[in-house]
Structure formats: structure tokens, C-alpha cells
Design a protein around this nucleic acid. Sequence first.
DNA 1: TTTACCATGTAAAATGTTACATGATTAG
DNA 2: CTAATCATGTAACATTTTACATGGTAAA
Lengths: 201, 201
Amino acid sequence: MSVKYILLGILSWNPSSGYEIKKEVEHKGRELGWGKISYGSIYPKLKELEKDGFIYCYEAQENGRLNKVYDLTKQGWDELQIWLSELPSYPVIRDELLMKLSFWKPSFLTYNNQLINHLEKRKEESLQMLDHLKEWETNEVSMITDVAALSMDYLKLQLNTEIEWIDQTIPRLHENTLTPSKDPNNLLDKALVRKEKMNGQ
Amino acid sequence: MSVKYILLGILSWNPSSGYEIKKEVEHKGRELGWGKISYGSIYPKLKELEKDGFIYCYEAQENGRLNKVYDLTKQGWDELQIWLSELPSYPVIRDELLMKLSFWKPSFLTYNNQLINHLEKRKEESLQMLDHLKEWETNEVSMITDVAALSMDYLKLQLNTEIEWIDQTIPRLHENTLTPSKDPNNLLDKALVRKEKMNGQ
DNA sequence: TTTACCATGTAAAATGTTACATGATTAG
DNA sequence: CTAATCATGTAACATTTTACATGGTAAA
């Protein structure tokens, strides 16, 4: 259902075509908690929202060419407002780096230098995100409302926290100074045995 | 595809039934970046992984009853190891709170006290998450490997950062001391006009 | 004129959830 | 005996991505 509100939200900023919506999401989506979106989602959903009376469509001349531009109807503005006023659900995180950390095994399965690569890549990408946010704050075209600026503050704080964590963690992996595993039921030893047994077959 | 690796990862900790896997994900999933999972995902995927030779199944007596327990084959251990060694993709965030902040409009559409409710609810839920993490670190049953402890450190840092951000933000909303909107193309004024026009119809 | 980008769309596949059916065991 | 929990499963639905088709416009 969230594609619906991404579309309504972006159209509330500015009347747009499907193509422009995609570009907007690509530019700001990751930062603003929208995720990604594809044409296969956008165009059918625009049709559906039009049919349901939340948006309407008109043809507009843009750089010497007729495009289909969508804008909110009264019903669309109302729908957006209602959604904004409803309590947001707690986010579900699906982070492959955290997944891999949580399934990482001592030396019998994996190596710390691979893990360090993972962390260094993550740091680079997060630094890029920070640059992108700063560009966005200082350029001469992007609108940032007072409230949207709060979410950008939030992201900068989270990204800086993440980078600090990586900077503390990599040396600990090099020096092998991690907190020892806690394993009251000896699952790690048992896992090693199970794995060895399979190797034999 | 990520359900596959959640199942392989959990089975690497301990041989389990579908039912036990669900409970494990419910207990730790949100924290460890796995997201949620349903029986409709688990049982068919276990069959598929068995058919593909990554896991095998045996019946085991557990609390006076025969259950279907799965464990990794050699091929399953290898598959998990390969996946762990591959660079993780950057996470896609889909956070309704951030979405709503980014689409929040000045008074003509929304009210700050609703926003404060949203933030207070988020803070409460994040405090609960912190409690849950602490319980998990100190109880006498959960295994936490040295590397998994890193991801728990990460999560605690992020949750604390979030709570601090909320604690700074709520007073700013009460006192109306937000950074003013940046709007070089006057989109906000134009949006107000577009909305009023629709109201008339 | 050809390459790159602008722009709209669809069919099929992938992925996952919801809601239900079914029955065993256990605790009160 | 009955409610709760344990346990396995499936069919229908919802959502979204992938891969493709199609053609216009602009710049080199």
C-alpha cells in the first residue's frame, strides 16, 4: 500500500508525470524512507488512483512535447491528510549486513577479513549518502520543508553513528578484541560437530 | 531470496522445526535485520530447500511428540558460507515515520501535535526494543556470538541516537523553532493554491 | 544518423502475507 | 472437559520487480 502514498505525497509537492516521479524517488527515496520503486509499480498505480478519484490527469507541453501530468483532486488531498495523521507503523529492517553479522560463525565457517571488507564497503556507501544529503541541503532547486529537514537531521545522525561504529569495530576485528561469545548451550561446539559430520558424507 | 538465508542461518545455529524457526524470527528478527516471516513463507521454502539439497529432515521426539526437524547438509553449509562472504547490499529503508515527515505540510494540511504523537509513539517502541536487547544479552539461554554482539552494539547505538533525536525534536515542535523551509521555486505556495482550487470544485 | 535520453506502458515472474483447515498435546 | 498452545500445511490474494516493447526528441 505504500506506493499509493508515495505517489500522493510526491504529487502534493508538484504535479508530475510517471517518469518524473521515478526520478524523484531515485533522487530522494533512500534518504526519506520511501525505498525504491519501478515503472511497473508507478504507471498501473497512477491509473488506479485516477480511477478511484484521488488524482486527475492532463496533458502538458514540456520541453516541446506532450506529457501526461498528474495532480491531486480534493479527495486526494483529503486522503493524504488522513494518512499523515495516522500513527506510522514501526519500521521493519531488512539489512543484509546485520543478517550476516548475526549468522557469522567463528573461524570454522568464515573469516574476519571478509567481514572487514563488508564494513568498509558500508562505510563508503554511507559517506556517499551523507554527501548526497549535504548537496541536497545546499543546492538551489530542492524544496525542503521545515519538517522534512527534521528527517534529514535524523538521517545524518544515524549515518554518523553508523560510521563511528564501523571505525571502532574494524580495529577490534584486526586486533581480535571482540567480546567473547555467550553460548550457554554450547551451540557453537555442536554446530561444528554437525558440520564435520556432513563433511564426512 | 532473503527467506532462504534466514532459514539456512537459523538452522546453522540449531536444527529446528518450522514452528521453532518462526518463534526465533519473532524473538530476534526485528533486531537482527531479518524483518518478519510467516508460515506461508517458511513451510514451502523448507520443502524447496530440502528438494534442492541444502537441508534434510528427520523426525524427532520433542516434548512427547514427533516433530519434523531440519538441519543443514554439506551443500547447505557451503551455500551459507558463500552467501556470508558476498558483499551485502545497502539496505533499503521503508520507514513510515520518515515518509510522513517528508510529506508533512505546513499548517494548511497538518498539525504539529499529531506529529508529536507520532514521535512519542516511536520513542516508546524504541525504548521497548532497547529493553528487549538488554534482556537478550543477560538471559541464560540465548546464544550471542562475538560477531553478532557487534550488530547488537550497532542497534543500541542507533536506537539511542533515535531517542536523543526525538527528545530534541519534540520541544522544537512545541516552541515552533524549526529551521524555516527552503523552497526556491515556491512549491509550497503553489501547492496551497492548487489545493484551494480543488476545494472550490 | 545514431546515440542517448525522455516517456509510457504491459505481461510474467517472484515474493510474501493472510486466512483458513486440521489435528495433537497440555494445563487448568 | 475445555481452552490454550504446539505444529504443519495450503490456497488465494497482494504487491512489486523484471524484462520487454514501443516510440518521441535532442544533440553529436
